[in-house]
Each structure stands twice: as C-alpha cells, then as structure tokens.
Amino acid sequence: MATNFVQDGCMLDVTNSTSADITSGQVVAVGAVLGVAMDDIAVGESGVLAIDGVFTVPKVSGAEINQGESLTWVVASSAFDDNAATAATGDITGSTAFAAEAAGAGAASLAVKFTGVPGTVKA
C-alpha cells in the first residue's frame, strides 16, 4: 500500500470550533462541504463527519423536492430546500448533496445523498 495513504475519504475528522455542541446526526458545514456528525461533538472537541452517504435529515416543510434534485442547505433553518430556493448569505448550494428520494411540501425530512464534493457558499 502507498505510504502516503491517509483514509478512504468518506469520513472527516473535525474539531468543533463553533459556540454550540454538535449532536449526532446533525448536518455540519466544513467550508463548502456538508457532512453528518457521527457522534456528539462538544465545543472544542474533535469528532467524525460522514461526507459521503445517504442520511435522513431536516427539510424545509414547504419545499417540493424531486428525487435526484440538487438542494440548498439553508443555514437559518438548518434544513434543506429545493434547488429553486433563493440562497441567503451562508447558504450552501451545488453538488455537495442531492435528494435521494422525493419529498412533498408536508414532509419535515428527506433522505439526502452527501457527496463530499464542495458546493458554493453564498457570500
């Protein structure tokens, strides 16, 4: 095996540098990449994010989302919206995640495929 191999890249070690604890299953942004916390991560502590895989996560309740649709991560509501949503400052769009299933307007969550590919953070 190559002596410079680090890991397969599906998970990332991160340090919680926010002012709040991160809970297991929470969507977390690392720059323009989205991931899901695998365990609780206290402020200042290190933990693991899955940046590749399918997870059931929060969705903006009014959004109509089709399977395979690219998504907008809405920072203010900590939920995904459809790709027609107008991104606000800090929201993440692009190929970092897409809908693994369809979800209607009344649904509070949906299955999302995280890709590990950077999206675009709205400035």
Score class of each variant (00 low, 15 high):
2 A>C: 09
38 M>F: 12
4 N>G: 15
117 V>P: 04
115 T>I: 04
117 V>C: 08
13 D>K: 15
122 K>G: 06
35 G>V: 02
97 A>R: 00
60 V>M: 09
35 G>C: 07
97 A>M: 01
85 A>M: 06
110 L>C: 06
33 V>T: 02
43 V>H: 00
82 D>A: 11
38 M>D: 13
56 T>V: 07
15 T>L: 13
117 V>G: 02
52 D>C: 12
72 T>Q: 02
62 G>P: 06
66 N>K: 07
84 A>F: 07
106 G>D: 14
35 G>Q: 03
29 A>H: 14
73 W>Q: 03
87 A>K: 08
107 A>G: 12
8 D>K: 14
10 C>L: 10
96 T>Q: 05
41 I>V: 10
79 A>R: 09
120 T>V: 03
71 L>R: 00
57 V>K: 02
99 A>S: 06
37 A>C: 10
55 F>I: 12
2 A>N: 11
27 V>H: 09
78 S>H: 11
57 V>R: 04
34 L>G: 01
75 V>N: 06
53 G>W: 04
45 E>I: 11
78 S>I: 08
33 V>M: 02
68 G>M: 03
88 A>L: 09
112 V>L: 05
109 S>I: 02
29 A>Q: 09
15 T>I: 15
28 V>Q: 14
43 V>K: 00
10 C>P: 08
94 G>M: 01
12 L>P: 03
82 D>V: 09
63 A>C: 09
117 V>H: 03
98 F>P: 00
112 V>G: 02
32 A>H: 09
89 T>Q: 15
82 D>G: 13
11 M>V: 12
116 G>I: 01
41 I>C: 08
3 T>C: 12
48 V>W: 11
7 Q>P: 04
41 I>H: 05
21 D>G: 12
62 G>M: 07
47 G>S: 05
121 V>P: 01
9 G>P: 04
103 A>S: 11
115 T>E: 05
94 G>E: 03
123 A>M: 04
7 Q>Y: 15
50 A>P: 02
92 I>R: 01
51 I>W: 00
15 T>F: 14
27 V>Y: 08
15 T>P: 11
96 T>Y: 09
86 T>D: 00
92 I>L: 09
35 G>E: 05
11 M>K: 13
33 V>Y: 01
33 V>L: 03
33 V>N: 01
40 D>S: 04
122 K>T: 12
19 S>A: 15
8 D>C: 10
44 G>E: 05
90 G>S: 08
17 S>A: 15
9 G>D: 11
74 V>L: 10
118 P>E: 12
32 A>Y: 14
1 M>A: 15
100 A>E: 04
3 T>W: 13
43 V>C: 00
55 F>L: 08
61 S>F: 12
16 N>S: 10
31 G>W: 03
82 D>R: 06
100 A>D: 11
79 A>I: 06
32 A>D: 15
107 A>W: 01
66 N>F: 07
113 K>L: 10
56 T>I: 07
74 V>M: 14
22 I>R: 15
92 I>Q: 05
37 A>N: 13
57 V>E: 04
62 G>Q: 10
103 A>M: 05
30 V>I: 13
69 E>Q: 13
50 A>Y: 02
42 A>K: 09
122 K>E: 07
104 G>C: 02
82 D>W: 04
101 E>P: 08
29 A>N: 14
109 S>C: 03
97 A>T: 00
2 A>F: 14
11 M>N: 08
36 V>Y: 02
3 T>I: 15
